[in-house]
Amino acid sequence: MAEDKKLGRNKKDSNDDMINLVDNLNRDDDVKYNRRAFLKSTVGASVAIGLATLPFSVLALNSKKDDSNRVFVANLSDVPKDSSMNFTYPTKDDPAILVHTKQGELKAYNNKCTHLQCPVFYEKEESVLLCPCHKGYFSLDNGHPLAGPPQRELPLIELQVKDGAIFAVGRKIRHE
């Protein structure tokens, strides 16, 4: 009599790989690497990362506001009403314009037209900022384009006046 082959559990008498797909499953591994174990390890890793970054979060919340972005622009007495002056902010390579309006307000913007980076000048008669390269006009109130090819507003430079001195303290690219 021919020897009968002893087949293992879920084995078919065939060499076809599609029939013997269950050969790669091991019940011990199935129990060890299930969804519950995966979720436990994921939650554990998340907690460990959260605890590791906690000291940095506390330092960020408790850090004092530094004045590293604060740059002296001019004395208020040196900029009469209805006049302007050029300065650089936030770096020496970034030209800016400060305007003391007829109403006594201080406005500052980057001094590069958003169309082709030409310099912008204060036009006293119309109280606007003018780019002479392509006749671009910007509102003095908010830096938004009024006429010409520019489509984006001029970046606003935030100012602070303290003891008669004007300081640039920040910059907003998109503003209202």
Rank of each mutant, 00 (worst) to 15 (best):
D66S: 12
F72R: 13
R70C: 05
I19T: 07
R70N: 07
S57Y: 14
E3R: 04
G136L: 15
M18S: 14
K64C: 05
N34H: 03
K124Y: 08
K32S: 05
A74C: 14
D67G: 09
A60T: 15
P149H: 04
I97C: 04
D66W: 15
P80T: 03
R171S: 05
L156H: 03
D141G: 07
T114G: 11
D30F: 06
K40T: 14
N26L: 10
H134D: 01
N142R: 15
D16Q: 11
E123F: 12
L39T: 07
I173D: 10
V79D: 03
F38H: 05
L154H: 01
D66K: 06
A147W: 14
N69V: 04
S68F: 08
V43G: 09
D28C: 04
S63D: 05
I157N: 00
K6N: 02
C133L: 07
K11C: 06
N24L: 05
N26M: 14
T53E: 11
I97D: 00
A2G: 05
L106H: 13
Q117P: 00
V169H: 10
Y109K: 09
N142C: 13
P132N: 11
N111R: 06
L39R: 04
S83F: 03
E158S: 15
N111D: 14
L7D: 04
V58R: 09
G170Y: 15
E158Q: 09
N24Q: 04
Q151E: 12
G143N: 01
F72G: 02
E125V: 08
D66H: 07
R152N: 11
K64N: 09
G164P: 04
N15F: 12
R174Q: 15
L116V: 11
K64E: 15
L159D: 03
A48W: 03
G8F: 11
K64P: 15
I19F: 10
K64A: 14
H115E: 14
L159I: 13
H175F: 09
Q103M: 06
Y137E: 10
V99L: 04
D16R: 04
A165C: 08
R36V: 12
N15S: 09
A60P: 01
V161A: 01
L76T: 03
R152P: 04
D17M: 05
L159Y: 15
K65R: 05
S68P: 01
S41P: 02
L129A: 12
P119Y: 07
S14G: 15
I173R: 10
V161P: 02
N142T: 08
Y89P: 11
G148F: 02
I173E: 12
L154T: 07
G143M: 06
N20W: 01
P55L: 13
E125C: 01
E125M: 06
M85W: 03
N10F: 12
L154F: 01
M1C: 07
N26Q: 05
V161K: 11
L130N: 05
D93F: 01
P155I: 02
H134E: 06
V99N: 00
Q151H: 08
M18L: 10
P145L: 02
R35D: 08
V43R: 13
L154M: 13
L21R: 07
V22F: 07
T88H: 12
H100Q: 10
H175N: 15
K65D: 09
L39M: 09
L129P: 00
K172F: 13
G164R: 12
L159M: 03
A52E: 03
